[in-house]
């Protein structure tokens, strides 16, 4: 259903993504893991057709994102990092706008907007301007935009970033509800999320895949059965080999990653 073929991206002389390939089938939730700056967002932006890759491509339900972007985009829903949305619009109007661009109209459009507002628990804020929403509602509004056309492929960049534990729970259960009939990719640096929603985990570090397996297999690789230990080993090892002198600061950032689990 979704096939990523050797995606690479250079920003000037920075190689942000150095050749990433994987496939995801219907019914799978792929956790896209990696420390900050690993290249998760850049990869997702290339899959969704927002950034042109330096080389490689992605095939979404048979449509090549490079050759036929409109058809590929039609099959995808995308929740970008930090949930961007038009601040001055009302939640309902924003969803109508998305639905219209997704090809809906008339009664079908209104029904779909209603249904999505219910599904994403947005009833309370439906007539509010988006800039007045709390982070959790804003995230859900942008999420609603991504699923309004019931896409076969759903791509989410850090969907629970900055949410409180209850809101995280809501987002995760929405993902679980949809998991069976879709291809889902969720990027995260929060390891609990992998166990909560993912059926497979791809760990990337410095723009390369270091591991592609199930959460259980990953856990079995560590002595104490904890994901964060495996994660740290995989992502730190890689850096120690390749970037010993240059990136001491970066390494500190990685060490912070396990601490994120405290804010769960």
């Amino acid at each position: 259903m979704l096939e990523v073929k050797n995606l690479k991206k250079h920003f000037g002389h920075i190689e942000a993504v150095k050749g990433i390939s994987f496939t995801v089938e219907k019914g799978e939730v792929l956790g896209f893991l990696g420390p900050n700056g690993a290249g998760k967002s850049t990869t997702m932006r290339m899959i969704t057709g927002f950034l042109p890759p330096t080389s490689g491509t992605a095939i979404v339900c048979g449509h090549d994102v490079q050759k036929d972007p409109v058809s590929a985009k039609r099959a995808m829903g995308y929740l970008p990092e930090n949930a961007p949305a038009y601040d001055s619009m009302m939640v309902t109007d924003f969803l109508r706008f998305a639905a219209r661009l997704r090809g809906m109209s008339g009664v079908a459009l209104e029904d779909k907007v209603e249904a999505t507002i219910h599904k994403c628990h947005l009833l309370k804020v439906r007539n509010q301007s988006i800039h007045t929403l709390s982070k959790g509602y804003r995230q859900r509004t942008c999420f609603a935009q991504a699923i309004i056309h019931d896409p076969p492929v759903l791509i989410m960049d850090e969907p629970t970033d900055g949410l409180d534990p209850n809101q995280k729970h809501v987002v995760r259960s929405m993902i679980n509800d949809m998991a069976a009939e879709k291809v889902i990719i969720v990027s995260t640096h929060i390891l609990e999320e992998v166990e909560a929603v993912c059926s497979r985990a791809v760990i990337i570090a410095n723009g390369k895949i270091v591991t592609n397996s199930t959460p259980d297999e990953l856990k079995s690789q560590s002595k104490n059965g904890r994901l964060d230990e495996v994660f740290r080993r995989l992502t730190l090892d890689d850096e120690d080999d390749a970037y010993k002198p240059a990136s001491a600061g970066e390494k500190d950032a990685h060490k912070l990653s396990p601490a994120h689990k405290e804010d769960m």
Partner: peptide
């Protein structure tokens, strides 16, 4: 929001 707009079909 450009990211939203340009990932629409």
């Amino acid at each position: 929001t450009l990211e939203l707009l340009l990932t629409m079909p």
